[in-house]
Design a binder for these strands. Structure first.
Lengths: 162, 162
DNA sequence: TATTGTTATACTCTATAACTATA
DNA sequence: TATAGTTATAGAGTATAACAATA
């Protein structure tokens, strides 16, 4: 029984993936036009802006954005060159790099966010009732927490032995 | 009021995007390991296998996968070279190319799908009740249909004048 | 010895524009 | 004139492995 394909699961999975793919494409365009950033760069800035002291280590920043470390280094380099973040060695752990968002980074985010919400609203939330929104938020929060708890994080490549 | 950020919408949106990003990363890996395909290639094959006569035109195939035409041409070239699809001119419209999945393509899909479902199940469905699954399926089907009806399709670049 | 982060490199994906041909 | 698809090309994103520095 464990291997049987359950049509409802399959349909739900495909509907989810296609919807998010379309949504991703739309917001990627919006972020590019409104703020000249890729969606990943936007996510990194958003994460930093939301972090306790508006700074995170590279490893913390990578987690959840599902990146290879070299990819993050590359993106951080671009964001730093654009003056949107700064990087400095951590006082707590000399190996670690502390990444912080700058005023310019916050300003850039502020330019992007209003239009961003509008895209999400017109594509994702328009066909949903308040009850749907609530249900979706509840479900996806649980799914996200479940996935975050799983081993395959961004640094998985390194943590595995074989 | 139209511009105000509604926290519940924002949280739902981010939870959705992060979850699907993690899920996408996991299934991409599974598809690569089980069938040596990218997720996009897998999607194209899955679409063809599901099509009325197991064939679609390039334009039909592109729609919903959110691709530039040249990108689809490129991927179709790879899949054809691998013997997983065939391309031939359409009898109805000489401009169109009919893409069909081969037996090898169907076999490849069959190799991938069981493991694919398992990944989706362990990451996405594990923390959900039957009721959640039903609600999520219902919601995402509506969202997908809403997005499909929107203008920004794969060929948008061409349909716009400026 | 394990972990953090960077570098160098190669590869894939995607997008733009110019092109051919059919409607 | 508009559409279907291809080509060439250039750019961005990502991953691998080897590396240096610190714990």
């Amino acid at each position: 029984m464990a291997d049987a394909l359950e049509p409802e699961q399959l349909n739900t999975y495909f509907a989810l993936m296609e919807s998010v793919s379309l949504l991703h494409h739309a917001v990627e365009q919006q972020v590019r036009e409104a703020g000249d950033l890729s969606y990943v760069q936007f996510q990194l800035l958003a994460r930093l802006a939301d972090a306790p002291e508006r700074q995170l280590t590279m490893t913390e920043l990578a987690d959840g954005v599902v990146y290879s470390r070299s990819g993050l280094t590359h993106q951080a380099g671009l964001l730093e060159k654009a003056g949107l973040i700064t990087r400095c060695p951590s006082p707590d752990d000399q190996r670690a790099t502390l990444v912080a968002i700058t005023q310019a980074g916050l300003a850039r985010l502020a330019e992007i966010l209003p239009g961003h919400i509008q895209v999400a609203r017109s594509l994702l939330f328009a066909p949903l009732s308040d009850q749907d929104l609530h249900a979706l938020g509840d479900i996806m929060a649980r799914v996200r927490d479940h996935m975050r708890a799983r081993p395959p994080r961004s640094a998985a490549t390194r943590k595995r032995r074989a």
